[in-house]
Computed example of a mutant assay.
Amino acid sequence: MQTIKLITNPLAGNESRHINIENLYQTQHERLHRFIQKRVWHKEDAEEILQLTYLEAMRCKDRFNGGSKPETWLFGIAVNLTRNYFKTHYSQAQFEEMTDALLYDLEAETEENPAVLVEHERMLTRAVEAMNTLPNDTQSMLQMIVDENYSYQDTAEKIGVPIGTIRSRLSRARQALKRYLD
């Protein structure tokens, strides 16, 4: 009769559920930072989400059940925080109604510091220049999405391309604009 030797995992049981946040920080920090930075345009916001990811991981480390790799768990936290960021910052109207009070505030700001008006005009000019450097098809796509409020799906159908193409073109356009404006 042959004896079967069972090899057990030394991390089985409660120990497999233990998560070392410091080790995750040391091994995954750069990768996690790049992951968040690709999704969040503003550097300061990306840094904040990165910090919040580690804070949430420390706060919830007892809930880690070992059902996935610790890295996967950590990146899942980052994904959820990034989603929350977009819900919070982009679910609000992007345009403010031009009221008398707003006009008064703008006039007061420019009277107090005329350089503000010059800086805003310079930024607007550079943004228009940057947009004009994009290929015509990308400019048309942006016009549909931004000016005409088309969804990505509607834009894809109108142009006759898959929605993934719209997303990748937008990603490349964002990168090109960011490079131009930096």
Rank of each mutant, 00 (worst) to 15 (best):
V40A: 00
C60N: 12
T82I: 11
L55R: 07
E30N: 11
P114K: 10
H89I: 06
L11K: 13
E44C: 00
T27R: 09
F86L: 02
E71L: 06
C60E: 12
A78T: 08
H42T: 03
R83D: 05
E56G: 00
Y54C: 03
L52Q: 14
L55Q: 08
I21G: 14
H89K: 13
Q94H: 07
N9Q: 04
W41C: 03
K69C: 05
Q28W: 03
R39S: 15
T53P: 01
E97I: 06
Q92P: 01
G13T: 05
G13A: 03
Q92A: 11
R31N: 09
S91W: 00
R83Y: 03
D105Y: 06
E48H: 08
W41L: 10
L103T: 14
M58R: 12
N84D: 15
F64V: 00
T53G: 07
A93Y: 05
E97K: 08
F95Q: 15
S16I: 01
G67K: 14
H18L: 12
F64I: 05
N113I: 00
N20Y: 10
V40W: 01
H29T: 08
M98T: 13
Q92D: 08
H18P: 11
N9W: 01
D100F: 04
L24D: 14
N80T: 07
I21R: 11
L106G: 12
R39K: 15
N9D: 13
H29A: 15
Q28E: 15
L55C: 04
R83S: 01
S91M: 11
A101Q: 04
W73R: 12
E112S: 13
M98K: 10
Q94Y: 02
E71H: 06
P114D: 13
E47D: 13
T53F: 09
W73T: 08
R59N: 13
E15A: 08
T88G: 04
Q94K: 08
T88H: 10
F64C: 03
E22H: 09
Q28C: 08
H42C: 08
M98I: 14
K69M: 06
D45W: 00
P10A: 03
I77L: 01
